[in-house]
Design a protein around this nucleic acid. Structure first.
Length: 409
DNA sequence: TCTGGGGTCCTAGGACCC
DNA sequence: TCTGGGGTCCTAGGACCC
């Protein structure tokens, strides 16, 4: 089953590779004594492990006694789980779950904060191993990629399984990290397939497998069907992907709209011709923060002003470091009831200047209801261009000498 | 003591232009 | 003189993903 017997052209073979419990696995490299134990990564506001590292500064990290690690039950504050080890998942905890809720389910689990530096280091490393073997790779965040196997030597052997194993093995030998791979005719199916055999597994599927291996799955397994669409499908008595595939396209279009309905029909039939894209330009950059307690624009003005300024400075720093400027400045608030509002404003010129961003974001803030307490504040810059391509607003041409710190309005 | 942070894409209405 | 159509930009919200 390598090339198409009719045309002789190679079969399209797309892989999706997903690092297993990536953030947690990276920590286990540093603390191998925690292997097999329930470990949860997340939070990070209280750096419980700072104390740990300070206390055992004279010991290599792998010799720190297990009993010394911070436990989930001792955590207080807002935050969610980024990743849980498979041992921790046994307790019913997993990604995106609130830490306080998780603490009730797995009080004895060890809790470590996210170490972005370390995670990014391993992310770069595993991706460069992949591109050395198979150059057509698309980034999908820190721990996932799509890879086009179609024209890679050996990419057709056993439907891609041989190449998948080579990549898996190369990553493990270089880093000690495992991953799961799905190989399929397209990205949509590859993404599903990579979940079939986790962790450290490989799953190969063909077009002809859609009926037997994909149709029995719940609708949520389609990447792009989230909780809202799932609920609507359930109301229409559609529970499996096969249930969707059995509906006429027009019926789906009538119920879900021209674009989403048609896409859903294609997805249920395993059809997807999106290319693996090796390059992409960012659309926006943002920074946001959730406060330890809900804040009020008037009563907590000084604190909010400082946070606001810092968010603007960080976005500006991100833009400058990465060589971008933007034209649309916006703010985001999340109220105590979790309702989100956004306001934005487009400038006549591009900028990456903290003061200009701060001033414009401040104008946006004036347009939202600030009488209610809120839990999150964010600053966003969109409509980006590379600095060297853009006609930018020079900082000294920005509205001068406005109160830019400690002042929200 | 529910519910992070950084993104993308889509929709939809109004402004504005030809 | 009774109501064109297309196109683009801007803004706000929402779904979804990792």
């Amino acid at each position: 089953m390598s090339p198409d017997p009719a045309t002789g052209a190679p079969l399209r073979r797309i892989a999706h590779l997903d690092m297993d419990a990536f953030y947690a696995s990276v920590e286990l490299l540093r603390y191998p004594q925690l292997k097999g134990l329930p470990v949860v990564i997340g939070g990070g506001r209280r750096r419980l492990d700072d104390a740990l590292r300070a206390k055992y500064a004279d010991l290599p990290t792998h010799e720190i006694p297990v009993a010394a690690f911070p436990l989930l039950k001792d955590y207080t504050g807002r935050g969610v789980i980024t990743t849980a080890t498979y041992a921790a998942r046994q307790f019913g905890v997993g990604s995106a779950m609130g830490l306080m809720k998780a603490a009730k389910l797995a009080p004895q689990a060890i809790l470590l904060p996210v170490d972005f530096e370390e995670v990014r280091k391993y992310s770069r490393q595993f991706k460069s191993i992949i591109t050395e073997i198979a150059p057509v790779m698309q980034d999908r965040g820190v721990d996932e990629v799509y890879i086009d196997f179609t024209h890679v030597p050996g990419g057709q052997r056993a439907g891609g399984r041989v190449l998948a194993r080579l990549i898996q093995k190369s990553i493990f030998e270089a880093t000690g990290l495992t991953c799961s791979v799905g190989v399929a005719p397209n990205k949509l199916l590859a993404k599903m397939a990579s979940e079939f055999n986790k962790p450290n597994g490989i799953s190969v599927i063909y077009e002809a497998d859609v009926q037997t291996r994909v149709w029995p799955l719940p609708v949520r397994k389609i990447n792009g069907i989230g909780p809202k669409a799932e609920a609507r499908l359930h109301k229409l008595h559609l529970h499996t992907i096969g249930d969707i595939a059995a509906q006429p396209r027009e019926w789906l279009v009538d119920n879900f709209g021209k674009s989403y309905g048609a896409w859903m029909h294609d997805a249920a039939w395993g059809r997807d011709d999106r290319p693996v894209q090796t390059e992409s330009e960012p659309v926006s950059m943002s920074r946001e923060t959730t406060f330890e307690r809900d804040l009020h624009a008037v009563r907590d003005r000084a604190e909010l002003g400082a946070i606001f300024t810092e968010l603007c400075e960080r976005v500006a720093g991100d833009l400058q470091r990465k060589g971008y400027v933007g034209k649309t400045i916006g703010v985001k608030l999340r109220y105590g009831d979790f309702k989100i509002v956004t306001r934005d404003q487009t400038l006549p010129e591009y900028t990456a200047d903290a003061k200009t961003i701060r001033h414009t974001a401040g104008l946006c803030l004036k347009r939202v209801d600030l009488t209610r307490r809120f839990r999150l504040l964010g600053v966003r810059v969109g409509t980006l261009a590379r600095t060297e391509d853009a006609q930018t607003l020079r900082p000294e041409a920005a509205p001068a000498d406005l109160p830019l710190t400690g002042e929200l309005f």
